[in-house]
Design a binder for these strands. Structure first.
Lengths: 111, 111
DNA sequence: ATAAAAGTTAACCTAGTGGTTAACTATGAA
DNA sequence: TTCATAGTTAACCACTAGGTTAACTTTTAT
């Protein structure tokens, strides 16, 4: 499975994860599902504030929601997290020396 | 090495990657360094536009820059990419069934 | 000396984030 | 039926992204 860089879903996923509180929520939900109120309480956020975060996570499909009576249960959708993992995973971050390759490139260009 | 969810650098890294064109630039630079003008040309962006993208990537330390004369060379700093990899990597995305765990949690809560 | 090249910076635009308070809807409990 | 609970929505705020055009600086080539 290939995850191209030009995927709009990847935009939404990474945007959703580019926030400490939302990463906190993702982490929390990686341990167990929760209700919206529980999330608000445990992350010191007002209900309207948590609501907005949840909408962003939901739009990115990082979470799923199910309403039971007046209670909203939320769970992590880790399949979506895998898309981000796949994209970043294709880059080798171990065997490259940035400054060296830059200096090298520059001196080759200056010939 | 632990990458906690509440890292401000992670905010900047993921924010920088949450954009198709910047991921395109990252991909491009993963193959070889380039100049600012080359990036603008090969990504159909004006110089002011590419400049802003570069600033965001630079702020996140995803790239490094070196000025030689009037030419600006840019290279990928893959060490920073590793931080994002580390954070996402800690989540198991293979062996969890979201809906099942949610249903399960709900029925346990309703007892 | 002049002009082009390579960027940078400023000013402006629209749209979205992340929070607030206040008002509202829907469901459950007394 | 009345009240509390759980959540949503609206209106507002300051701030930032991502783009534009126009003006500017610095360096190189003619």
């Amino acid at each position: 499975m290939i995850t191209p860089y030009d995927s709009p879903q990847l935009d939404m996923i990474l945007e959703a994860l580019a926030n400490q509180k939302r990463r906190g929520i993702v982490h929390y939900l990686s341990l167990q599902p929760a209700t919206v109120s529980q999330l608000a309480k445990d992350h010191s956020l007002s209900l309207p504030a948590i609501h907005k975060h949840i909408r962003i996570l939901e739009k990115a499909q990082l979470i799923v929601r199910k309403k039971v009576g007046r209670t909203n249960f939320v769970a992590l959708n880790s399949k979506t997290l895998q898309l981000a993992k796949d994209w970043i995973g294709q880059y080798n971050t171990r065997f490259s020396s940035t400054s060296a390759s830059l200096e090298n490139y520059i001196s080759r260009m200056r010939e």
